[in-house]
């Protein structure tokens, strides 16, 4: 059953269908928010809020094959609202960082091998150094797992523009990662 069918069933009283929909989408929404805020608690709060909104408007959705776009658009709007609110209250956004990265203990190891957590931390730290536009396309595509087609619907942007933006973001990320991850270093051709 696809997402739209699950939502329709949920709207007509099928709690199991709603459960399946939440199971499929909530971790992706949470991942997208936490990638932007670096605050897992806030990300969970926003994720809950997003699904409350979807639940309240369960009958408003008109099937056009865009349910994913609808849900993630709500999530992005909620995220922007939260960022605006935080800016207004002059709170620094996400100084929490990743505890794993702060407690790596790297210097104590004679032959250092990067852990998965450290790899993740270094990778996403490099993403955070990119422009907001580059971050957005990488988060939507590789954290939330949204197809280019759906992102195009969400952002009301042509797919060709998104592909070009994604391509440039990857190259910039490789340039950032080069010193830490030699395997991703840009070729001379790319650097030109």
């Amino acid at each position: 059953m696809d997402y739209a069918q699950l939502l329709k069933a949920a709207a007509h009283g099928d709690d199991q269908a709603w459960s399946e929909l939440v199971k499929a989408l909530a971790p992706r929404v949470h991942g997208l928010i936490v990638a932007n805020t670096r605050d897992p608690d806030l990300a969970e709060e926003i994720t809950q809020s997003v699904f409350c909104t979807v639940a309240e408007r369960v009958h408003d959705y008109v099937e056009q094959g865009r349910l994913e776009a609808w849900v993630f658009r709500i999530a992005m709007n909620r995220l922007r609202d939260e960022m605006r609110r935080r800016t207004r209250h002059a709170k620094p956004v996400g100084d929490v960082g990743f505890p794993e990265a702060q407690q790596s203990g790297r210097e104590d190891r004679p032959a250092y091998v990067r852990t998965d957590d450290e790899t993740a931390s270094a990778l996403w730290d490099a993403v955070r150094d990119l422009s907001p536009q580059d971050q957005e396309i990488l988060h939507l595509r590789h954290v939330a797992g949204i197809s280019f087609k759906t992102i195009a619907e969400m952002l009301d942007t042509p797919v060709g523009t998104l592909l070009a933006r994604h391509f440039r973001a990857l190259k910039r990320l490789r340039a950032q990662l080069g010193p830490v991850f030699p395997e991703f270093e840009l070729s001379e051709e790319d650097q030109q």
Partner: peptide, 20 residues
Amino acid sequence: PSPIPAGLVDRVLQASMPAL
């Protein structure tokens, strides 16, 4: 970028049921 917190889906379900 961050592991999915344990019990996330259950908590989202619990929070969204009244809204549903």
